[in-house]
Design a protein around this nucleic acid. Structure first.
Length: 425
RNA sequence: GGAGAGAUGGCCGAGUGGUCGAAGGCGCACGCCUGGAAAGUGUGUAAACCCCACAAGGGUUUCGAGGGUUCGAAUCCCUCUCUCUCCGCCA
């Protein structure tokens, strides 16, 4: 959520930056500023009435003590009138604040200056590529066929117990999955992140804190009996640790990591996008989150991208790094890098990580601040990234490392898997 | 799930209708003391919003959350949430 004071002081800049997302925010910004004007005017008036009421209430106390009943009762009448006025103003203020908040919730984050203009994924910039494209045999298979051939992932069984998009991992498939989770967490720890195991369900306030609510409730699984949402990413619980928190400047940056399963309803997806492991309702992911000083956050964003691409280097997967254009970026982000791996069996790129700087957009909703010395608290910057999302990594590993009689396992994982080749045994 | 007790500032803890944003202590910051430190001692120590120049100064709100009674609520009433103790159930 953007701040009205910022919009007021930087009206044109806000409009220009939001234009990168392909829409004209002029009207929305002006409406917000004018609602904010009436909010201030109403509060000023209300404060005056309340101040008067408080003064009279004190006088009444004093009058009673002095035994001046008549004067006291006269003052009571006056206080009653003020009360009526203040109630009215309070109602007005509340409705103005609600309107203001509704408007602010609808405004996406402002893209950073380096974000390219553009509407679709076509307009994303490739900033770097890494790894070697594999040369596969003529009869190379996509991962869903390999999964069946070696009996390591059972999609039908998942349909039986739950539904489509809930695969069952078996034998070496399950062990490879677990190995990847452990390796990712160890790599994150080596990079200075503290490991957490957060709740896999969150309350409504947490959904609002990171921006899934109010707009994207349809994407989350909801448990009405307890009013909980299944986490769509570890970002939600991890970042909400800091809701209503004031950190000391010297505590920054805070670096956290967690593995969680992620649950997404993915309403409206279809076709080749949901084939095999490409898009699931439940998947595993290791997430990294940082809370940063505003002056440092963009350096940290690069550091996070380097961490993630380093994982892909070590796995030997070919990848590319994209800087998302304004139109393709998430609602809450100021700058996002996507990392995609080459899925040799499908002949397409698969997104395996998204690393974003949210600047103060989430911090404003969360009231996540830090204090420098004795200065006033100011909003921190939040960042997060996948490091990494498992299913598409699994898909790429299966496809890119397939050989005649099995699937080779990258060397960095050997001590985690306990086997070097998937043979279906 | 049932019964009872509780929720106060960074922490502990007083406060049962007016002078309470809240005693006292701890912690923290700065000063004095000291060769330096400890001890001692003095001062200060929440957040948001509004007026104003984001200064000084002033105002409003906030004692788990929301509502109510009252001229006036940390204090009385109602609802909810959470914590603790006991019972039940249970990985």
């Amino acid at each position: 959520m953007l701040q009205p004071t910022f919009l007021r002081d930087n009206r044109q800049e806000t409009i220009d930056r939001l234009a990168k997302r392909g829409f004209d925010a002029t009207e929305a910004v002006d409406i917000i500023i004018s609602i904010d004007d009436s909010r201030k005017a109403t509060q000023t008036e209300l404060d005056g009435v309340l101040a008067e009421s408080n003064r009279i209430a004190k006088d009444i106390g004093a009058l009673f003590k002095e035994g001046k009943q008549t004067e006291a009762n006269a003052a009571k009448v006056q206080a009653g009138e003020l009360k009526e006025r203040s109630n009215l103003l309070q109602e007005q203020l509340l409705s103005i604040e609600t309107r203001l908040q509704d408007r602010l919730y609808q405004l996406p984050n402002m893209p950073h200056s380096t974000v390219p203009f553009g509407r679709t994924a076509e307009d994303n910039q490739t900033v770097r590529s890494g790894g070697q494209m594999p040369t596969l045999a003529k009869d190379a298979l996509p991962h869903w066929d390999l999964a069946k051939k070696f009996n390591i992932i059972d999609f039908e069984l998942g349909v039986k117990v739950t539904g489509a998009g809930f695969p069952v991992y078996r034998g070496q498939g399950a062990r490879l999955q677990r190995a990847l989770i452990n390796w990712f967490l160890d790599e994150a720890r080596d990079a200075g992140y503290t490991e957490y195991i957060p709740p896999f369900m969150v309350n409504e306030a947490s959904g609002y804190g990171t921006g899934q609510l109010p707009d994207k409730e349809g994407q989350m699984y909801y448990m009405p009996a307890d009013e909980f949402y299944m986490v769509p990413t570890a970002e939600v619980p991890l970042t909400n640790f800091f809701r209503d928190v004031i950190l000391k400047a010297e505590e920054l940056p805070v670096k956290l990591t967690a593995y969680t399963p992620c649950f997404r309803r993915e309403a409206g997806s279809y076709g080749k996008d949901v084939k095999g492991l490409n898009r699931l309702h439940q998947f595993d992911k290791v997430e990294v989150v940082q809370v940063a000083h505003p002056d440092k956050s963009y350096g940290i964003l690069e550091e996070m991208v380097t961490h993630v691409s380093g994982l892909l280097d070590k796995l030997g997967l070919p990848y590319r790094i994209l800087r998302l254009c304004g139109g393709d970026m998430g609602f809450t982000s100021a700058l996002t890098y996507d990392l995609e791996v080459w899925s040799a069996g499908q002949g397409r790129w698969l997104e395996v990580s998204s690393v974003s700087n949210f600047e103060t957009f989430q911090a404003n909703r969360l009231k996540l601040r830090f204090r420098e010395g004795n200065e006033k608290p100011q909003l921190a910057h939040t960042l997060n990234g996948s490091a990494l999302a498992l299913p598409r990594i699994m898909a790429a590993l299966l496809e890119n490392y397939q050989v005649a009689d099995g699937i080779r396992v990258p060397e960095v994982l050997h001590s985690y898997t306990g086997f070097h080749t998937i043979t279906g045994a």
